[in-house]
C-alpha cells in the first residue's frame, strides 16, 4: 500500500480525493489498476490508487479512487482496460436506472434520474433538454438541440459528468420509444 504525496498534473494533492465525493473503480488485477491510473492521469484527471473497503473488495486489493462526478469521462478513458465496476465510496446506492416517460400531444419527455429530454414524436427532433446541474449540461443542451435522436453524438461521448451519463440514459430511453413508435406506424 502506498500514499504518494507529490502533486499530480492537475495540481490537486491526492489526499484531497478524500474530499471530492469519491468513486472507486474496481479491477481484477493490480496491473490493470496501475495501467488505468496512468491513463487517467495522462488525460488530466485527479485520481489515486487506494485500498477498497472490505465490503467493496471483489478483485485485486487496489482500486482507483476518483471524483465520482467525472464518471462519464473516466469510463470513456478506460475503454481499453477491463475493470469490474464503478462504485460510489460513500453509501451503497447503485447508479439510478429508472426511466420515466411523459406524453404530450406532439412530444414525448423522457426522464432518467435528474435529466430530461423532449423530442417531437413525428420527426424525432430533440426540442429541449432540462434538469441537471453539472458543468457539461449547458454545453450538451446546445450540442444536441434541434437534431434527430438517432443522429446525435451521444452525451456519454461528449460529456464528462454524472449528469451527462443520466442524459445519455434519457436519450437511450427516448430512442427506444421513438423507434418503437416508428415500427408501429
Amino acid at each position: 500500500m502506498f500514499w504518494p504525496k507529490k502533486k499530480d498534473k492537475t495540481g490537486a494533492n491526492k489526499n484531497n480525493l478524500n474530499q471530492l465525493g469519491q468513486g472507486l473503480i474496481l479491477f481484477d488485477t493490480v496491473e490493470e489498476a496501475i495501467q488505468a491510473e496512468k491513463l487517467v492521469k495522462k488525460a488530466g484527471y485527479t485520481c489515486a490508487l487506494v485500498a477498497p473497503p472490505p465490503s467493496l473488495r471483489k478483485g485485486c486489493d487496489i482500486a482507483l479512487a476518483f471524483n465520482l462526478v467525472e464518471q462519464t469521462a473516466l469510463e470513456r478513458i478506460l475503454q481499453s482496460i477491463p475493470y469490474q465496476q464503478v462504485v460510489p465510496r460513500a453509501g451503497t446506492a447503485p447508479l439510478l436506472d429508472i426511466v420515466q416517460v411523459t406524453q404530450y400531444p406532439r412530444h414525448v419527455m423522457v426522464k432518467a434520474g435528474n435529466m430530461k429530454i423532449t423530442y417531437e414524436k413525428e420527426s424525432g427532433l430533440i426540442v429541449n433538454t432540462s434538469g441537471g446541474g453539472c458543468p457539461d449540461i449547458p454545453y450538451l443542451h446546445i450540442e444536441i438541440l434541434g437534431q434527430r435522436l438517432d443522429q446525435i453524438a451521444r452525451p456519454r461521448e461528449l460529456g464528462h459528468t454524472l449528469c451527462a451519463l443520466m442524459l445519455d440514459r434519457a436519450v437511450e430511453g427516448a430512442l427506444e420509444i421513438w423507434k418503437g413508435e416508428e415500427i408501429q406506424c
Binding site: 465520482l68 451503497t92 446506492a93 434520474g113 443520466m166
Partner: peptide, 13 residues
C-alpha cells in the same frame, strides 16, 4: 433527503 448521496445520479432507488 438521501443522507448518503453525493449526486442525484446515486440516490437510493
Amino acid at each position: 433527503a438521501d443522507k448518503e448521496a453525493i449526486h442525484p445520479a446515486y440516490i437510493d432507488k
